[in-house]
Design a protein around this nucleic acid. Sequence first.
DNA 1: GATGAATGAGCATTCATTCAT
DNA 2: TATGAATGAATGCTCATTCAT
Lengths: 199, 199, 199, 199
Amino acid sequence: MARSGNPAGEPEPVRRRLLAEATRLFAERGFESTSVQEIVTAAGVTKGAMYHYFDSKDDLLHEIYGRVLRLQMERLTKVADGPGTVTERLHAAAADVVLTTVENLDDSKIFFRSMHQLAPDTHKSVRAERRRYHERFRDLVSEGQREGVFRADIPADIVVDFFFGSVHHLGTWYHTDGPLSGAEVGAHFADMLLTSLRP
Amino acid sequence: MARSGNPAGEPEPVRRRLLAEATRLFAERGFESTSVQEIVTAAGVTKGAMYHYFDSKDDLLHEIYGRVLRLQMERLTKVADGPGTVTERLHAAAADVVLTTVENLDDSKIFFRSMHQLAPDTHKSVRAERRRYHERFRDLVSEGQREGVFRADIPADIVVDFFFGSVHHLGTWYHTDGPLSGAEVGAHFADMLLTSLRP
Amino acid sequence: MARSGNPAGEPEPVRRRLLAEATRLFAERGFESTSVQEIVTAAGVTKGAMYHYFDSKDDLLHEIYGRVLRLQMERLTKVADGPGTVTERLHAAAADVVLTTVENLDDSKIFFRSMHQLAPDTHKSVRAERRRYHERFRDLVSEGQREGVFRADIPADIVVDFFFGSVHHLGTWYHTDGPLSGAEVGAHFADMLLTSLRP
Amino acid sequence: MARSGNPAGEPEPVRRRLLAEATRLFAERGFESTSVQEIVTAAGVTKGAMYHYFDSKDDLLHEIYGRVLRLQMERLTKVADGPGTVTERLHAAAADVVLTTVENLDDSKIFFRSMHQLAPDTHKSVRAERRRYHERFRDLVSEGQREGVFRADIPADIVVDFFFGSVHHLGTWYHTDGPLSGAEVGAHFADMLLTSLRP
DNA sequence: GATGAATGAGCATTCATTCAT
DNA sequence: TATGAATGAATGCTCATTCAT
């Protein structure tokens, strides 16, 4: 199931293609409404091949989550641990998560529509990882509150839930061909967040 | 389709029970993962009875949406058309939608997990009704921007999407037995919204 | 079930309308594919009303058959027992059955598509009545063969089955708005029958 | 859809068995009154297996039709394009279609009872193929009429509908254990047809 | 006479998964 | 590695009929 040690560097096109098509289809019609047959047909492979690379349909979803969770945490860590004032870092982190979300809008759609379909254990582990991500973000808010640059009369947790609700819902309204680019929406969202935190 | 002819006032217990159990189950495990059999068993009626009152499983979902959409629009209209400055009215509307959302958290969960499962036409009509609701809310923001009491450098549409993302995601984290009451969360959310709009 | 003694002469519109709509629908989509609900909706009455006038859906079909069987037997008897040579009478009977068939094309369609759906006993009684009809027709053929005006080297039964196959299949190809009137087709069919019997 | 890869020569027993049992059951009780469960039970396979080989119950019926249509067209072409006068060829074709019809009486029964149950598109394609068959037969009649060996005062189309009505109705009265063999009935039918066409 | 809510058995179809090859 | 035939349980839905009112 894990990426097989492919010493030659071959890009495992089958596995990759399966994940890509599954992502597209899950985002388009939802996890439950996408059949394994549709996924393998779209990827141009057979069912047997899919069950060779993945344990189950659930496993496919889990892998998609793993990919996006790793990516987001990596980018947040880079910004949060980087240079700059807490205001600058929170602004950058907020703008960046909006940008990466609209750049991977399918992943985002899947996340909030289908997470509850995972087997309980898998579900729990995904939620735990997401919580760690939110905590890192919350720590930035708390840091600013302690320093007195952000208002402290709103719990940092609420601020995080407030902001990530907005981010997670991008999938329901944002369109690439709409009037605003991802960066522009990111700027507006980060502005609103920072403004709402002004003491 | 609604029927009364029930002079004693005990109105259509079968239909009502079906809607209640369907709401609970859809919120608990999602629309696609809930079978009609589970719904009718939970409601203590037969499948035939369900199909007497509803055209399909889809119709059940549609009715649930209709109920919540009507309720929200009604409450928003009352506040938005009521007395007070635009700041007061927007604050009240924002706090109120949070409160009614947590008071009907199952409806909210269903909305964002399952709406895309509706038949295209039904989906379209539900989205249209939701859009009208958002437009009424946006008009409040625009009104404040025109009056100069809200900053005008952020499109009102973005403000609405920003705020309602937060509201719609309450279902993923809010718990009745958590540290904050619905009214408290509503106050915080409304505060953040209004603060972020300060010129 | 029997036509209720309606002393006032009222035309029992409900019963009549049910039979008319059932005939139309059975011809259009077949007996099995027509639901009782569709029939009663088309007739503008309720299910309860239908079950007041008819014992079952089967009964409806049986009544339709009864009506057409009575009509055909009546017309054949009149011609066969009437004046004229056997050649004239057979020609007239053959032309007439074609004409009445195209004038009641729905009945004919139903007959051959749906008869086998009747309950065994009902089926048997309908077949028996149809056999009596065929026998009366066959007697005309036999009469001509005995008289020497028709060739006798073909069994009269085969002649009857040959001819009525053609008649019964009118429903699959004849259209009121086609190039030939029912009387013209009747003339051609009767001509072919009589010609094929020339000694 | 057909698959072989069966070097031993025992070709696709599952698919074949399903078609055979479906043919028998559709003839016996009609298409609508035969359940998929009855078919697969009779064929000794599971429902899943049936849906592996056929797209739907409709598809099963369509395949049955395809088989008989191909067979009939093939035999007609052989006779019609063969040697002999047009009288000889029409007689041979007429006698032959009667013979193959009684040899595949189940197919014939199904054809006229159940064709209208097909999905509109499938229905249309089956009718089109049957029309081509009738046209080839009609061409023989027209040929004789042009040559002056058949009477020309009856439209060839009517002659074809007249004759095929008789053929198609064999299923409603012919029994293998009756007094006449298929070949004898074929001879009588062909005689009647040719006689009725004598100028 | 007439209603329409309710029944309950039955229907065609789907689908994730397994396994002999 | 990879195939695809086969499974078997589940799904949403239909429908002729009944019956209290």
